[in-house]
Design a protein around this nucleic acid. Sequence first.
DNA 1: GTCTTTGGAGAACGTTCGTTCTCCGACGTC
DNA 2: GACGTCGGAGAACGAACGTTCTCCAAAGAC
Lengths: 211, 211
Amino acid sequence: MAKSATASEAKTATKTGGKTSRTRLDDETAQQQILSAADRLFYERGVQAVGMDAIRDAAGVSLKRLYQLFPSKEHLIEAYLRHRDALWQSMLDEHVDARTDPRERILAVFDFLRDWSSQPDYRGCAFIRTFNELRAASPHIAEMATHHKDGFRAELVELAREAGADAPEQLADQLILLSEGAITRCAMAGSSAPATRAREAAAAILDATLN
Amino acid sequence: MAKSATASEAKTATKTGGKTSRTRLDDETAQQQILSAADRLFYERGVQAVGMDAIRDAAGVSLKRLYQLFPSKEHLIEAYLRHRDALWQSMLDEHVDARTDPRERILAVFDFLRDWSSQPDYRGCAFIRTFNELRAASPHIAEMATHHKDGFRAELVELAREAGADAPEQLADQLILLSEGAITRCAMAGSSAPATRAREAAAAILDATLN
DNA sequence: GTCTTTGGAGAACGTTCGTTCTCCGACGTC
DNA sequence: GACGTCGGAGAACGAACGTTCTCCAAAGAC
């Protein structure tokens, strides 16, 4: 990671000749631009529908450089999912940690889903979609998706435990169903209303479950 | 549909020459075999990952005949979704109509999901998956998927109304979240347990909602 | 200045896919 | 048997894709 930080630096645009040669970026910046472009395109259209050429164009780098930093499309998809996982974690934590009351912290999950699904470029869960696209072709990537869902479930179990649920795992499983349902239906309906319905249903379940 | 029933009939296998020429099928049989093969492959791997050649091989017809009966892959995908819609309707109705008590009829939806997701070739909802794969490329097919979901919602609203719910649409929206969540999580987890959890959560919601 | 290295731009390669075309054997009719 | 028709098998075609290679301008070292 901290390799070859000596020589290569960013250059300014060189338009000495007739053509406009593109700016030379350091590895970190190029990686970020590629990942940002891949994230946007993969998430909008699905991983199979986006070619490496489209990512090169959107990132503004050469194919050569793209393959230097990400040796194959599969590597890029993995980086995309890791990035989405970090994004999900930070957005979720931001909402949950804004609350202190255990019951409110659970409901904050659904506030997060409402906010997230309100974004105009919202397209549902990247992990479910990539899982469905690649489960037959790439077991490794499919496993990354299930691992993400395992993490989400563990977080819900912990929140349920903090709320003093008698059966935190069972409560978490019910909440996860509402979450997944909301994520999917918000994407298909193009509306965040299902997330609001999910919050109401979750509140009803909490009322019935917590003492 | 009842066209050209006069001349063409099925032939027996002709192995007069050195090669074994394939049996000539009438249009209806060929269409069924193609649709059956397409359904199996599309549902298992996703529509983008399955080529027309694979469907030809699995259906045992020639490409020429395939394109005579289904002029393009998009036509075949449409037929696939229509077939899945009919399958869903018949499986769902079978479970719901086996009950008479309105509350039981609602819970029968989740019994259906449990049975369906127990099948070894279960891969979740064909409509959601196809929607996610093709929403950017084919708005028409995406609309078929949303139309299917609208129909499911209407059925749940009717069941909620029959059960005497004060707000049948709101109850249906909550039940749909549990259903979609169960459909998705059963597919990712490779287990029908989420459907059972969804039934329990639905029962809790019904207890809290119905008087 | 000259030489070497670097990397951008994009052509090229091999494969796959959706779709169409060609070849030729088998059958119906006379 | 001769001829026309039908359709199966699979080659062919053009586009798109993932990946690699070629060419050449620009920068650095001396």
